[in-house]
Design a protein around this nucleic acid. Structure first.
Length: 800
RNA sequence: GCCGUGGUGGUGGAAUUGGUAUACACGCACGACUUAAAAUCGUGUCCCUUUAUGGGAUGUGGGUUCGAGUCCCACCCGCGGCACCA
């Protein structure tokens, strides 16, 4: 009897599949198309992670099933290879980032192939390839031409000791990750993308896609659209006006202070002489804090009085103007009206600085805590007695009439800072000419290649390392031919990943990012799977780029992804993140060497619900290995596959086919495998046999999960063609109906008895049967049930 | 803190979406095979009382319902995101 030797059969079939070109997606094929995509990985030096594989194995199973169902499946893979870790590694080791990237990609690809993933490698892409980033740059130029890419002064994290800009991730507790020095903020001119211009559509078009509700929620909350009122507060003794945005105009009569952000444009004018030094010190201190720190609710609020006042238009009261860093400069005009009685943060602020807490909405006890719910207005002049909702409307109308306010919409979403002062990214294709100004690089000159140099260390001035490469920076202006300089900032890692799903469709095209007919055929992506951690930023960014391209007529669909699904993280056995520093990383290669790729695949899918976080368990892997061994043993046992008609087992088989079919489509990989295990356990029982034909049906449903073993057993049954060229089996709807089912008899909701009954039994019969049971009689104790509830095919509940 | 999400045996989890809680798998215990171990096979395995019957249990507390892991309210804990990690 041949023993299960995964390494031998897996290599054999991987080779054969490659020779047969089994997974090639065919442009314009007559079969219906199915575009299934998993997020392309960042090829880090650590190699493929178990978390990557969880997504790849599961979606691979689905892709395989869809091919068997007759779809023309596009299931591609590529590399999101620009980024900070590679650059930092290169600086540390002196190995060029291009070389690091190339090596890492080779490792990743080899590992993927060893798992038997059915990617169409002919469409492979690499975001660091000039042939690829040419089009990232081209899209940027389109943004620039439409005025959606613009320059603005923005703060970055700055380490005064290392003299480099830092990513948020590199700032830990306000200190530089590398040297421990206290970081500050440095303002630089940065390229921005105007994503806010698409805010409404990014919310509204979610109605057109089938993302799970929680993902939609996160997108909507991130954009944070709120309808409200803008109110003008005149500064006392000046012509200046402070605009404030509020969603709670009904609380206007409770305003007892005004607070502006330290970055507010009127700040300088508002400070009175006696408060100058205090304010200056406060502003300097707040510059050191990150926005995250500043807005944390649990932290104690700080602030200083400016010395100035403004006028509350609804009651003409004089209101003191304060400065506090919990106010965000970029949201709602950078000023907040303080209504201590009806806002949590305002309440804290008022208690600390002894401001008046004036109740204007009844319903709570504002001497103890803020009352933030809607209610009835009090102490609000002519508006007293109204409910909050009506009052918001009426007060807003009053403000508009008196020309001191208007209705507005506000978004939490901010424009996208698109500049990075790093070497390992796509150069921004812009030329700065002293005479002509800012000009985009002519499209015929694309790509602007990243110069291959030995030195890519930071410059010390905050500028990109590219700024030091004089021969690259100095160019002629494309318009006047005079002396000009290249933009030295590069794009963020997000750039390449914002449109890569389009490039897979036509990855070799050098005239366009993709041919329109091919885009027409393949778009949208039918299913896009990736990590939970990408459901706000990456997803939003790529939707934004796609919509922009749609507006220019370059893509045929409004949305890029029809369905988005997110998988949970894979933690280590100890419940912590798999990390080198914890020493708890499980390498895919070791598992493949010991158990084979099929076992690893089955385990990755069996371990738990796909969308939830799971912990790795080496012992669990062993269980999956045992399952595959049992399958092999059954097929090696001639007495198990005969022509006999085992009706009970065939019914079970068709039930499993149905279960696997439905579970795969709804991404419930774990229960699909559990059902197959259950079936194999029953089949293994004495005297349980299948016909060859039925045994092959089982192989078909197993094949997406354990492709190598299924293909091996399939060929051992004298089949010449690959199992993946076979149609997906259909189940017999008549066969799976149970003739007998178990009636649960409950008394007051507790199970007291179980009886087997025939399909089609009437309600009356069920009730009579239930009452006739000995146990039921005992529990009823001669009493008559008050009520009888019958759930067909399930249970009957007698209420006493 | 804000937004999202989760909490079920010793462990990973299942539960027809309001209808038998603990499928499947791991681990453990006992048995078979073996000189022995591993592997494999078989039996058992939520807790309490028990010959049986019975009672209790899905993070905690309350509620709705004939019936709640599932719905509602409050609280506790874990995880992801928070805009320059990808």
């Amino acid at each position: 009897m041949p023993k299960y030797n995964p390494s031998k059969i897996e290599k054999k079939w991987q080779k054969k599949w490659q020779e047969q070109d089994l997974y090639k997606a065919v442009d314009f094929d007559k079969r219906p198309k199915k575009y299934i995509m998993v997020e392309f990985p960042y090829p880090s030096g650590d190699g493929l992670h178990m978390g990557h594989l969880r997504s790849y194995c599961s979606l691979d199973a689905l892709a395989r099933k869809k091919r068997m169902e007759g779809f023309n499946v596009l299931f591609p893979m590529g590399w999101d290879a620009f980024g900070l870790p590679t650059e930092n590694y290169a600086i540390k080791t002196g190995i060029h980032p291009a070389k690091v990237t190339k090596d890492n990609i080779a490792t990743f690809k080899k590992q993927m192939k060893s798992i038997g993933l059915s990617f169409d490698w002919s469409r492979e892409i690499d975001s660091t390839d000039p042939k690829y980033y040419k089009w990232s740059q081209w899209i940027f130029i389109q943004f620039f031409k439409k005025g959606l890419a613009y320059q603005s002064k923005m703060p970055i994290n700055w380490c005064p000791s290392c003299k480099i800009g830092l990513a948020n991730e590199e700032v830990i507790g306000g200190k530089c990750e590398r040297c421990g020095a206290e970081t500050s903020r440095k303002t630089l001119k940065q390229w921005m993308l105007k994503i806010t211009a698409y805010a409404d559509r990014l919310i509204d078009d979610l109605e057109k896609v089938d993302y799970v509700e929680k993902i939609k929620r996160q997108q909507i909350n991130w954009i944070g659209r709120s309808y409200g009122t803008e109110i003008d507060f005149k500064v006392v003794g000046s012509e200046d006006v402070i605009n404030v945005f509020t969603t709670r105009a009904d609380t206007s009569f409770g305003i007892t202070a005004m607070v502006i952000a330290p970055e507010h444009s009127l700040l300088e004018k508002l400070i009175t002489k006696e408060n100058k030094s205090k304010v200056k010190a406060y502003v300097a201190a707040s510059k050191k804090k990150s926005e995250f720190e500043r807005t944390q609710l649990d932290k104690e609020k700080t602030g200083v009085f400016s010395g100035s006042y403004c006028i509350n238009p609804v009651n003409n009261e004089k209101v003191p103007i304060w400065i506090s860093d919990y106010v965000v400069a970029t949201y709602g005009g950078g000023a907040v009206m303080i209504v201590p009685a009806h806002d949590k943060r305002d309440y804290q602020f008022a208690e600390k600085y002894d401001l008046e807490i004036r109740e204007v909405i009844s319903g709570g006890n504002v001497s103890k805590q803020s009352y933030i719910d809607y209610g009835t207005l009090v102490n609000s002049g002519q508006f007293s007695g109204l409910d909050s909702k009506t009052a918001i409307e009426k007060i807003t109308v009053w403000l508009i009439k008196n020309k001191v306010g208007k209705k507005t919409v506000n978004y939490k979403l901010r424009d996208w800072v698109f500049s990075r002062q790093h070497y390992w990214g796509e150069p921004i294709p812009i030329i700065h000419c002293q005479k002509c100004g800012v000009r985009s690089v002519p499209e015929k000159d694309l790509p602007v290649k990243l110069p291959y140099v030995k030195k890519y260390e930071p410059t010390g001035t905050g500028e990109s390392p590219l700024a030091d490469i004089k021969e690259w920076v100095n160019v002629k202006c494309p318009e006047c031919n005079g002396p000009a300089k290249r933009e030295t900032d590069t794009m963020p890692n997000w750039a390449g990943s914002s449109w890569y799903f389009l490039r897979y469709i036509d990855s070799k095209n050098d005239k366009k990012f993709a041919a329109p007919e091919k885009l027409e055929y393949w778009l949208p992506v039918d299913l896009y799977n990736g990590g939970m951690e990408h459901t706000t930023l990456h997803l939003l960014y790529s939707r934004f780029w796609h919509k922009f391209l749609y507006d220019l007529g370059h893509v045929p669909t409004i949305e890029p992804y029809q369905r988005r699904y997110s998988h949970g993280v894979v933690l280590a056995e100890d419940g912590r993140k798999m990390s080198k520093s914890f020493g708890n990383v499980i390498k895919p290669k070791n598992v493949v060497d010991q158990y084979g790729a099929d076992t690893l695949r089955v385990y990755e899918m069996f371990v738990g619900p796909f969308d939830q976080m799971i912990s790795w368990s080496t012992e669990g892997v062993h269980g999956c290995f045992r399952f595959l061994n049992k399958v092999l043993a059954l097929f090696n046992d001639e007495s198990k596959i005969t022509g006999k008609n085992d009706k009970g087992l065939i019914t079970k088989l068709h039930q499993v086919v149905k279960k696997v079919d439905e579970d795969l489509d709804s991404m419930k990989f774990n229960t699909a495998i559990a059902a197959m295990m259950e079936f194999v356990n029953i089949w293994s029982e004495n005297n349980r046999v299948l016909s060859k034909k039925d045994a092959q049906i089982f192989l078909s449903i197993l094949s997406p999960f354990a492709p190598h073993l299924a293909e091996e057993l399939w060929s051992s049954l004298d089949n010449k063609q690959s199992i993946f060229k076979q149609p997906w089996p259909e189940y017999d709807k008549k066969l799976i109906k149970q003739e007998i089912w178990q009636l649960i008899i409950q008394i007051n909701g507790k199970v007291r008895d179980k009886v087997e009954v025939k399909q089609g039994i009437s309600e009356k019969q069920v009730k009579e049967l239930a009452l006739a049971q000995e146990k039921v009689q005992k529990w009823l104790n001669n009493k008559k049930p008050k009520k009888i509830i019958y759930i067909p095919n399930r249970l009957v509940n007698l209420v006493v």
